[in-house]
Design a protein around this nucleic acid. Structure first.
Lengths: 192, 192
DNA sequence: CCAAGACTAGACAGATCTGTCTGGTAATGT
DNA sequence: ACATTACCAGACAGATCTGTCTAGTCTTGG
């Protein structure tokens, strides 16, 4: 069937290897800095096979970011009983990732820095991520009965961006706790 | 004298044109995306002249960021009577820049995204900027008698980073006010 | 048994990248 | 008057970039 063919192609081993290699190299060294030749060499894939699965490099970049998107969505699932706990748990999860060795900042922020054109497909994936995260925070704040969910969601998003940047450029050990107490100050009962 | 020669070289018209062009192109389109050939063409400078002033592209990139650094230092001078007002004024200044059309995010964050190696000269300029900003905020908080200046400075730095990212990737009109009230919440008298 | 598709190996084209080099002009200061 | 220096114009080298193409192997479903 058509669906079988599609599934087979999507889960092809060569394609999988290319995507894994692309994620490691794009994230670790930057997108423009990594050429197709190097990706296919390290993935052990022929050039024709690569261009069979990905019509262009931009398609690979989009696929890489879309995988990151679904990965983050799974990892940053809110846990806890109350909406406040859920918000904190999301930041705890991000904070842990952010302090890990090998952390190189937010894949979406970094990618956007290399794709200035707001209409580019890559930027659209970035937009999807940011809208999802903002809406998630807003909904949690609404559920928590926060008086100003819309604006507070923007504050929290800004804090997350700052945490991601600091985890890459500054000392992650300091940034994590600081951002966490900032979140507490912003959504704490005293703020309401 | 040597100093005369040095001054003449540093203020040479060709060098000035190269730096202006580099700033516009690097900031607007990304660093790896802009080649030397294009910079010298748009600056109207011969290739030999370029390599006379800048031994390599990396030197130009560093010079570009160092100019941004001193420019920000002049622009973000704290104004106002009280330390609280000074902190807010710095964010007001940054907020205005951030909402301007043509804003493409923080030049240092964007550059760091393209230079993953923390030991690279480019990253050292980025570090200088971040240390300066963090120390400035911390000193203002100390002057304001804030109980936790060190950690609060990190929070404010994270907010600034988030504001810069949001001004580029999201709707700047929303991000500005949100971050400003977040600053108020974090340094407000109730926080003390 | 055989057709189709996934895959490999690698040459090739055309553009672009950084950086070097030659050669010549113009201004400047001593 | 002369040496130095800034500058221009552009060829050139060698590497690397994306993307195409040929040609052949291997696997698998019908």
């Amino acid at each position: 069937m058509a669906s079988t063919t599609t599934t087979a192609r999507r889960e092809s081993p060569a394609r999988r290897r290319v995507l894994d290699t692309a994620r490691a190299l794009f994230y670790g060294e930057g997108i423009h800095a990594v050429g197709i030749d190097r990706i296919i060499a390290e993935a052990g894939v022929a050039k024709a096979t690569f261009y069979h699965h990905f019509p262009s490099k931009d398609d690979l970049v989009c696929a890489y970011l879309e995988e990151q998107l679904s990965s983050v969505r799974q990892l940053a699932v809110p846990r806890g009983a109350t909406p406040e706990e859920k918000i904190v748990s999301v930041f705890e999860a991000i904070g842990e990732i952010t302090c890990k060795p090998g952390f190189r900042g937010c894949a979406f922020i970094n990618a956007a820095a290399e794709y200035p054109d707001p209409g580019h497909p890559v930027r659209r994936v970035v937009d999807t991520f940011r809208r999802w995260f903002r809406d998630t925070l807003r909904d949690l704040l609404i559920a928590a009965g926060h008086p100003d969910p819309e604006r507070t969601a923007l504050m929290l998003l800004a804090l997350r961006d700052g945490l991601a940047v600091a985890g890459d450029l500054d000392d992650p050990a300091n940034a994590g706790p600081a951002v966490r107490s900032a979140v507490a100050r912003l959504i704490g009962t005293d703020a309401a």
